[in-house]
């Protein structure tokens, strides 16, 4: 290691190449978050359904997704779906779908926790005053639940940014993949992957810190 000669100029020379990867990373994370927020709602509604069958489906999806590795899920969607069901997805779509489903299962839990954190008494008060179940949900439960779910949702976004690096394995050209490509052509993994780690950190850390401050401020209210 002593006589290793750093070639940090590799980074500025290939900055555009790496930044297109970063753009992909952030786009994929943002799209995935939006899809997962909807998917999470579907799973949460299934979980809390009055009908046993729907509840079973919701719980089953959640348990399977939460208890298998995300990497295996991505490989399965990319390599197995075409073989098993003849569904061919390009790698970008496979990544977005895979991450969305994975995140949905966790976000469903976030929603459920948020809704269940609203004391039953608040709903009973609404019921006694004559508000309909819909009014009670939209006016009393949801505004309180949203406030509780926003920080965990943001935390999920941080997770997504990091997990999107797994796209590299199925050759999605996000920043990690770009790094692998660049490293293969320049033989400079040390500089490149250090730089990429710093980029991830500089995006994720401020987000995580703001969430922490946000949560602290909320708990004081």
């Amino acid at each position: 290691m002593g006589d290793y000669r750093f070639r940090w100029d590799i980074i500025p020379q290939n900055l555009d190449f790496l930044m297109t990867g970063l753009q992909q990373t952030l786009t994929i994370s943002a799209i995935t978050l939006c899809l997962a927020m909807l998917g999470g709602l579907v799973i949460a509604l299934l979980d809390m359904s009055r009908f046993g069958l729907l509840r079973f489906v919701g719980v089953a999806i959640g348990e399977v997704v939460r208890n298998t590795p995300i990497l295996v899920q991505l490989l399965w969607i990319y390599y197995v779906l075409p073989m098993a069901l003849g569904i061919n997805l390009d790698s970008w779509t496979a990544l977005v779908i895979g991450l969305s489903i994975y995140s949905s299962a966790f976000i469903a839990e976030v929603y459920r926790a948020g809704i269940q954190a609203v004391p039953v008494g608040h709903r009973e008060a609404a019921q006694v005053l004559g508000l309909s179940p819909m009014q009670s949900f939209s006016r009393i439960v949801l505004p309180q639940a949203i406030r509780l779910t926003l920080p965990p949702l943001a935390a999920n976004f941080v997770q997504l940014i990091k997990y999107s690096s797994l796209g590299a394995v199925i050759s999605v050209t996000e920043i990690t993949r770009r790094g692998m490509e660049l490293s293969a052509s320049t033989f400079r993994p040390l500089e490149i992957f250090t730089f990429i780690a710093i980029v991830y950190f500089l995006i994720c850390w401020p987000l995580a810190m703001s969430i922490r401050i946000w949560e602290r401020r909320m708990s004081r209210r």
Binding site: P119, G121, H122, E124, A125, A126, V128, L129, G130, I140, Q144
Partner: peptide, 14 residues
Amino acid sequence: RSDIGMVFQHFNLW
């Protein structure tokens, strides 16, 4: 429904 008012032990204000 609304002819019957109720006050709870734990207030249950929103």
